[in-house]
């Protein structure tokens, strides 16, 4: 199949991107980076990641689960208390 023109350029002339979207994007890439960085040293639980990245616990959970969903992190194991999972970077 052949494509003449990138349609993105057409819509760019019609639509404005809301500042909120750009803000969210920044937050996401910042937090993603921070979490990935924290996990480089080895598997960590969400509270451990939160402590290291200064993210609030709910935020750490939300972003960790997003990374889990998008396939950046995987579950390593469960802690001894059966409370928190350790997450690690997906080996690529």
């Amino acid at each position: 199949m052949e494509k003449k023109e990138k349609t993105i350029d057409i819509i760019k002339q019609e639509r404005k991107v809301s500042p909120q979207v750009l803000e969210d994007r920044k937050t996401y890439s910042r937090n993603r980076k921070a979490i990935m960085e924290a996990l480089k040293a080895g598997p960590k639980t969400i509270p451990q990641v939160a402590a290291e990245t200064q993210l609030s616990l709910p935020d750490a959970t939300y972003f960790m689960m997003a990374l889990f969903k998008f396939g950046d992190v995987v579950v390593e194991s469960l802690d001894d208390m059966d409370e928190y999972y350790f997450y690690e970077l997906k080996k690529k």
């Binding site: 639980t45 969400i46 509270p47 939160a50 616990l57 709910p58 750490a60 959970t61 939300y62 960790m64 689960m65 889990f68 969903k69 579950v75 469960l78 059966d82 409370e83 928190y84 999972y85």
Partner: peptide, 14 residues
Amino acid sequence: RPFNNVLRPSDGKI
């Protein structure tokens, strides 16, 4: 499901 198990949204605890 959204998580790897049933977890609390506040801190990922089971």
